[in-house]
Write a protein that binds this DNA or RNA. Structure first.
Lengths: 232, 232
DNA sequence: ATATTGTTTTTTGTATACAAAATGCGTTAA
DNA sequence: TTAACGCATTTTGTATACAAAAAACAATAT
């Protein structure tokens, strides 16, 4: 009965379920390790098990849930190692992204990038971390589009998902906002000027700083006794 | 009735179907643009539509098939652009891979890498392109494992899949075998010596040459009237 | 001959039914 | 008290049934 996902109408139920579950995982309403019961989900969303199962297969391939045959699906755990792995790959791919953008960006996209950069600065000024996160995504999406590589877009989207929870938290960190602005500006200017080397190194520094923020956050948590289960 | 996939026994049917379909796509027995009829597949493999549908959802997320709601699944088309996109990403990630391998490879893995490198040289000597392709995969897998990054492994596997058909063909190219040996050896030596810069540039050159071979192959085909369908 | 409309057939989407494995629980025996 | 066994329940895996959309086809009118 509860729909909880807009923009459907003629969307197959499996996609509705998929988006709904993904949202709950990314926003932390379902936490790593939680068992995903097909019957629970289907009754909660008012559909049968069939679309639920298909959605689970999709989430499995995305890496958000882990299947054990005959034992069901669980929300994938995030370890520090897995986060390190993601960040390493992102560093290379973000560098690639801005390098490609340097040579392929159109004048219209340059304009968009400027706006996105300015919007980010304004968002930081408001100190509203939701707005900051949104503006951050917009800036990076603009760069990604300018790179004109569809496969890169797919992979980066997938990597971003893995970082979603942490992105929100590292942006909440009190200190680094001004640094973020500077880093974005540096990337922006390099891309506009078509300076591939400088753009790449700026992108790498940007990720490197995120890594530091995220890892300090993880370690901080490790101190506290964190192993609570079932937030509902 | 026809099983066509070994190593199952207690594998869920969806995985059997998934592997079976993937194999047929990768080996070209089903070609891009082909319509995948659920009922055909299920009767051919002797299972019901349920596991077939779940397998299709997985292949969709992997990018091997493209779904149109209410209109079924088709094998994804490979365009020159999509191949270029894949190669660009691979260049960055292969460079990352060997850089990581430089600092993380164990002495045991160094040994494996040496063996893989030598096996590749022997394979080239036989001039059997199937053997060459296998040895090539072995060499790259060894490097990938040495990099100790699970996410990188996943992504590279996915990218390799997209190139599977072409890998076979470019390896068939008469000219480049000796070059391949030299390139591998250069990568091998750099990694053993822990020279990140040299390893990265060697890896990039390696991919760059593959790009040239693959693209010449694609262009060659474009000349001939290639739009045949249904090879069965 | 072509376009349009209506009808039949095919195909996908969804729900449900049934089988088999896994889980949980209580009982019994050491 | 604990370990082990068996039974009941839950949960996943698979098949099938039914609904609805799309495609194929035929007939009619222009």
């Amino acid at each position: 009965m509860n729909n909880s996902q807009s923009a459907d109408e003629f969307m197959p139920l499996r996609d509705m379920v998929y988006k709904s579950l993904r949202k709950e995982i990314l926003t932390g309403r379902i936490t790593p390790g939680d068992h995903l019961l097909e019957l629970d989900i289907s009754s909660k969303l008012g559909v049968s098990r069939t679309p639920v199962r298909e959605a689970l297969r999709m989430l499995e391939l995305e890496g958000l849930v882990t299947m054990q045959p005959r034992r069901g699906a669980r929300v994938s755990k995030i370890t520090e190692k897995s986060m390190q792995d993601v960040l390493e790959v992102r560093e290379s791919l973000d560098a690639l992204c801005v390098e490609l953008a340097c040579t392929r960006i159109t004048s219209q996209e340059k304009d968009e990038l400027r706006k996105a950069c300015e919007a980010f600065e304004r968002a930081v000024a408001t100190n509203d971390s939701r707005k900051i996160a949104e503006a951050d995504v917009r800036f990076h999406d603009t760069l990604l589009r300018a790179a004109k590589n569809d496969r890169l877009v797919d992979i980066e989207e997938n990597l971003s998902q893995s970082m979603y929870r942490f992105r929100f938290e590292y942006i909440n960190e009190g200190n680094g906002h001004d640094n973020l602005v500077k880093e974005h500006r540096s990337i922006y200017e390099s891309v506009i000027n078509g300076d591939r080397e400088k753009a790449a190194s700026a992108a790498r520094i940007h990720i490197e700083n995120q890594r530091a923020a995220i890892l300090s956050k993880i370690n901080e948590k490790e101190q506290a006794p964190v192993n609570k289960k079932n937030n509902r």
